[in-house]
């Protein structure tokens, strides 16, 4: 399988009175269709790594290769374009826009991309929500949804533009056991359907189902 994302000697430091190294010399390769779990102690730099992989943060040194091209020379706008079209994020908190209904939240990335007609965007968003068991919740506002439902809407939103890679940062960290299991099942199903997914989690059970586990300790990748 082709490599979707690759990093070489990826390092992120925060300058300041007390400089902090968030990520140090990380070499990672994610192949298409892989289901990867990133795990490690709290504060070890998992989120920081995920933000770098998701082109949300810029490395201090090292490279990120997306689909074979190096991204360090890309402008902020170009990076935004890639995030829009190629990447899907799910965070620990759903981060849905509170004024928009579930459906509108899912439609948003598609409308921003502007590739499909309005009717098609709506249809696709409805299908996504339906496939995640949210057919009855489409027109509700985020505050009318449970935590698990919100997180599923967030997953639908991440899938909206059919991304190359889905990045999830402790997507079940804030959910009760049942919802947590449900979200994990959805992610595993997506992986089984051929999606490329990298997910940060503390859940050892969940980690066991992954194709590969990357363990981070103190910003460095620990030997398996």
């Amino acid at each position: 399988m082709p490599v979707v994302l690759k990093t070489t000697q990826l390092t992120r430091r925060l300058e300041g009175e007390v400089p902090v190294t968030l990520v140090e010399n990380a070499d990672i390769e994610i192949r298409q269709g892989e289901f990867i779990v990133i795990t490690g102690p709290s504060g070890s730099g998992k989120s920081s790594l995920l933000y770098l992989l998701g082109l949300l943060d810029v490395p201090t040194s090292g490279q990120i290769w997306l689909n074979g091209t190096e991204t360090s020379s890309y402008s902020e706008d170009r990076l935004a374009d890639i995030r829009l079209a190629e990447l899907g994020f799910v965070f620990q908190f759903h981060f849905l826009l509170p004024e928009f209904t579930a459906l509108e939240n899912v439609m948003l990335p598609m409308r921003r991309l502007g590739k499909l007609s309005g009717a098609k965007i709506r249809k696709h968003a409805e299908e996504l929500l339906d496939s995640l068991g949210l057919a009855d919740q489409m027109h509700k506002l985020p505050r009318q949804l449970s935590g698990g439902q919100s997180q599923r809407v967030a997953i639908a939103r991440a899938l909206a533009n059919d991304p190359l890679l889905i990045l999830a940062d402790e997507p079940t960290g804030n959910l009760d056991t049942a919802s947590s299991a449900n979200v994990q099942k959805i992610l595993k199903d997506l992986a089984r359907q051929g999606r490329t997914i990298a997910v940060v989690t503390h859940d050892t059970h969940f980690a066991k189902t992954a194709d590969r586990v990357i363990t981070i300790v103190d910003g460095k990748i620990a030997a398996p």
Partner: peptide
């Protein structure tokens, strides 16, 4: 701030 962040992460320009 959160919504702005999510919009940016989603691909909206500054």
């Amino acid at each position: 701030l959160r919504d702005i962040s999510i919009l940016k992460s989603m691909g909206f320009y500054a």
